[in-house]
């Protein structure tokens, strides 16, 4: 009974994933958008960094990095809060 239920869930889940794969675009498309062109043309002049990925992560999309830093800070604070008192006993 349990195995049949697991099998049913597996089949439904893989059907959903396969139906998603069939609607994917071909690899590498869409080929060009306006945002890509703007960043490739202006990232070196505006931020002065050769690595366009870093200029996007820390300059154009700085808010996302701030959110990521907040997530890491919250995770560390939670782990220290739960486990530190037990570690020193």
């Amino acid at each position: 009974m349990n195995k049949i239920a697991i099998l049913m869930v597996f089949i439904i889940f893989s059907c959903a994933l396969i139906s998603t794969i069939l609607t994917l675009r071909p690899f590498g498309e869409p080929k060009s958008t306006e945002m890509d062109d703007y960043i490739i043309k202006n990232a070196q002049n505006e931020t002065g960094s050769n690595n366009a990925v870093t200029s996007v992560v820390f300059d154009y999309r700085g808010f996302d990095t701030l959110g990521e830093a907040t997530v890491l800070f919250t995770a560390v604070a939670g782990v220290l809060l739960v486990l530190r008192r037990n570690a020193h006993e």
Binding site: Q44, G48, S49, N50, T54, S55, F58, D59
Partner: peptide, 16 residues
């Protein structure tokens, strides 16, 4: 830095 591919310089990048 100059536009396009260049050997790179540590003294670039602003606050990055």
């Amino acid at each position: 830095p100059p536009f396009g591919s260049n050997p790179g310089d540590m003294n670039t990048g602003g606050v990055l």
